[in-house]
Write a protein that binds this DNA or RNA. Structure first.
Lengths: 242, 242, 242, 242
DNA sequence: CATGAATGAGTGTTCATTCAT
DNA sequence: TATGAATGAACACTCATTCAT
């Protein structure tokens, strides 16, 4: 923080260049000498700091993901309600991805499908973060925020899949500037998904949702209805689709 | 269909081999000579049929996606309701991905992030298919199936992102055999997402959700209420989360 | 044999160039591209024929040593006496080394001390040939040609060490033309070494080595000796030095 | 000698490390940084003392061979007989090679075939030592110890080639511990070679090797011979083999 | 059509060596 | 004197691609 102005070290310059070039050309098509040139060092210097081209690749998310997830974790204890925490976590993803487009391109388009990356500390940090999301959803199920029949894994997949898909397409369209930032998409997405799994609170719902257009008429209807239908069970529940 | 038993042509053998090898090793790590060996032809023969290694790569989804989407399109006219058509389209994705794991690995893990692939006929077919999905969602909005304030793009992203995420993870875990096939995941996912955007049909809702425990009491309550509140609008609708 | 005039194949040209360059500059200092240039092919063509720089290195003695030792083996059955066979074997070494100076430089100065070369078929051929030498010496000991107390291993070391040393020095002096060819050195060397281990054949030796200083005295001594010792065998054999 | 306990200087530590590593891995495969690490100094420090990797290589035999040959030279004046001096010189080789296996591996397996090494002071010392050997053999010829027709160069080659060959093979078998030390091989080798070139001392030979088949006949022959040939020197000398 | 044979172009990686501190 | 940091210069090896047969 204090050294914002400090001249970047060689190592940082190399990682910055590598991130940009790996993200834009893909790992196999990027060459060490292009990276070293952009960083203003020699090829050999890259190998001073990173033993291997792949080591350099993995060093990037290693640094970023650790920084990010530690940061976001710090905020969580201050948020009480499950949905709020869920939103905070998703927001940290979205912010990270939006503020570091090269990073998100790298992770979403290349690293996620790299087998060796999945054995990396960086990927472990990502997994840890995904696990917290899962735990949070489970807590929501346990405390009645979400319906008891919710499949926590599936919800997580829908949540992360949605965000990832939005970013992947954003990247594939060349990251167009949009009036709404990517972050503005988060709440609608969350609302769609969460509204699908929120536990219904029945009594309240009657109270809340009842909209009496004409009380007199209703009163009459009820009176009329009473003698005839003892067990007026106007059906349904039709909750499952089809 | 009719030629199931016919001996595969050279071209088909090459494409089959290429699909498997590209999917398993990634495009840059696959070599023409490995493919030609598996196909039982010479390197040079591969170049007889496909001008370039990349041409061969793109020829694969070209063929598959055209076949598939034409097939699935044929069914749609027979399905009247929007949700049914939506489900049919999603199902055709899921079936394709699950039945052709090499193909889904190739498309989801490699091609999606390939810039040149986006200028391909194969990608055009994929876009067309994605566009039909969008149209269907819009139709649902127009005909009142979905809420008027639904963001069709967002819904499509959530739908496809969920499915893609599920398949990507399935691949990255080595495509484990699961008791429920991937297809069984579709309905829960759809239900979560669609239930979040279905238009509430107010009258029905009153009818549907009202559960009158004691009609007499209610009747009395209403009578009591009448004189005081002419326009008894017991608040509510509180639809926004939190 | 019949195709002496035939144009050399690429493979042969590569091996020829490699032999010369490896011998003159040493294996690590030789480069593939120098070899390929001299052979008139591309670098990649070298790798068509030889998987590795080291494979190319080992392919050279592989070919030569097999050819040579089979050839020399063919003559041996026609030579009865042990010394003659020994000489024939040594001669085949010397001829090979002298007629293929690059080959002898390579083998004597570089390959002999190369650990991986010792696991090679070429080295197996060399070992086989060295073993025949040993067998021959042993046979000489068994049949009385050589003294019974001869250390066959040691003799072989002395024989081969002598020849190798002579060639190493010949090479290190830049292979000077000499009035006597290297082959002319073989017999003197053999004579020195073999004369050191030949079993003495008593009768002949008497004739040959007798030097009578004083015939009268001897005559008298003999006369005196006659009655007593019919078979005067004045012992001796005293063969060990010192 | 006096400074056995003194802490080794940087320079010595570097040379010790270099000797071991050059010998074990070969010069081209050894790296400066491995050497400097083993010596406990930095790469740059190596270059303080030795201008070049090759300079470091040549500095090692330079030091050792000077030390050794000066030492051995000191003893020679005390040995009168030629064979004794020859033996002393050969022994100093064998001792040096056996007590400093790294050194002998380096010299015999790598330096001997290095052209630039032959322009080195170290090689000059080796040549000087080889020259003394030659002088000694010549002296033996001159003073009648060795036969007049001995080829001094050839004898030296046989002597040194034998020792070198034995050591090379010892190294190539991984320097096995042997019941007889390498030094114990020297005398048998010397005996084989020298016995092949020793001048015959006639009297002893008569006494030792005389085998009289028929004393009477011999006696008569001698009597007959006496008047005619005062100094009957019956032929002989037939020294060349076959 | 099919292919064996050939190669141009390229890249990751290594290390001896330098030099400012 | 000692060295940490930096690099220039190489080199083995790979592979998509071509083309004569």
């Amino acid at each position: 923080m204090a050294d914002h102005t400090r001249k970047k070290t060689r190592k940082e310059r190399i990682m910055d260049a590598a991130l940009r070039i790996f993200a834009e050309k893909s790992f196999p098509e990027a060459t060490i000498s292009e990276i070293s040139k952009e960083a203003g060092v020699s090829d050999a210097t890259v190998y001073e700091y990173f033993g291997t081209k792949e080591d350099l690749l993995f060093a990037i998310p290693e640094k970023i993901s650790n920084d990010t997830f530690e940061e976001s974790e710090a905020v969580l204890p201050f948020i009480q309600d499950v949905e709020g925490r869920l939103r905070a976590m998703m927001l940290s993803y979205v912010k990270l991805y939006e503020n570091n487009p090269h990073y998100s391109a790298l992770v979403l388009l290349q690293l996620m499908s790299n087998k060796r990356f999945r054995q990396t500390d960086a990927h472990a940090a990502i997994r840890r973060s995904a696990h917290r999301l899962l735990d949070c959803i489970r807590e929501g199920i346990a405390n009645g925020t979400f319906r008891a029949d919710t499949d926590a894994y599936l919800i997580r997949s829908v949540l992360m899949g949605s965000v990832e898909h939005l970013f992947i397409h954003w990247h594939m369209q060349g990251m167009p500037k949009r009036d709404k930032s990517m972050m503005a998409l988060l709440d609608p997405v969350l609302e769609i998904i969460l509204s699908g799994i929120r536990a219904k609170k029945p009594e309240q719902e009657v109270v809340l949702r009842l909209k009496v257009e004409n009380a007199k008429t209703l009163s009459r209807m009820l009176s009329d209805a009473l003698p005839e239908k003892k067990k007026g069970k106007p059906s349904l529940k039709k909750n499952t689709v089809k």
